[in-house]
Design a protein around this nucleic acid. Structure first.
Lengths: 140, 140
DNA sequence: GCATCTGATGAGACTATGTCTCATGTGTGC
DNA sequence: GCACACATGAGACATAGTCTCATCAGATGC
């Protein structure tokens, strides 16, 4: 995962700097989604002295490469999810924050139908699913 | 529309105050989505002397009643869309900002399939579609 | 119409999230 | 090893939203 991110950065033609290596390692250690503030706090705990701007710049880079996606949580906060750079959607556990990807399973038909009805030309869509993961369901 | 919002506020058991009437009228005059800042600016232009807090409080109330929905634009900003209080999704024009609602047209099957594959219990979902509206398509 | 009382208001401080600038630091290619 | 362009951290700035608190004004009962 860290490897994958570093490779992607390399492919994007940017430098593999210390802060970038450290941050990708921190992202790897996180399970599920995290906020920029989480990452910044992690970096602070490790006394890495990494600035806010660097964190946001890396998240931008990774999201350009499709390795991280920004989602809008139901409570309005923004979170980032590490993921594969293929088209897919996210399932987010509202209890523990775990996430999984779901591949495209029929959404194209839905957007096509919406386009037909509305006359819109649809360029992008965003589907986010929120619920409880199997672990949280059985833990309770 | 303004009527509808005022009725909803009445039903919610809150007071129909001057600022609330003025703001719902401003919302009605807007086409498609708007940000809290837009509304605040409109209020300022009309020299209505309405505070930030009041705007956010009204948007909260309206969204509790399902008459306004908050969406996350592709560029990361938050916008609000006036809408009917039934379950539906939004189509947003990236050129002019116009929005339309699309009723549920098959998304249930998609979420059910995602739930089956992942083991998640899905509690809510959010689908936002972005593209170009018929007017912008023909204008160009 | 008027008084009362409680909920709503505006101002502005505060927090969170993200962006920008700029002087300094450091990978990378040579 | 060197040079240079790219990346960095610090911190100012911008934007979005929340909170507090003294004051104001709907709604209700008379």
């Amino acid at each position: 995962m860290t490897e994958e991110m570093l490779n992607a950065l390399d492919r994007a033609g940017v430098r593999l700097t210390g802060p970038r290596r450290q941050l990708t390692a921190l992202i790897e250690r996180r399970q599920g989604h995290f906020t920029a503030a989480d990452l910044l706090k992690d970096a602070g705990r490790g006394h890495l002295g990494i600035g806010r701007a660097t964190v946001f710049r890396l998240l931008d880079l990774l999201s350009e490469q499709g390795l991280v996606e920004r989602i809008d949580l139901p409570d309005g906060r923004h979170a980032y999810i590490p993921c594969e750079p293929t088209h897919h959607h996210h399932l987010v556990c509202l209890d523990c924050g775990a996430t999984t990807d779901v591949e495209d399973c029929g959404i194209e038909a839905v957007t096509a139908e919406a386009a037909r009805r509305s006359g819109f030309q649809i360029q992008q869509h965003r589907l986010e699913l929120f619920g409880r993961c199997p672990d949280c369901r059985s833990a309770n």
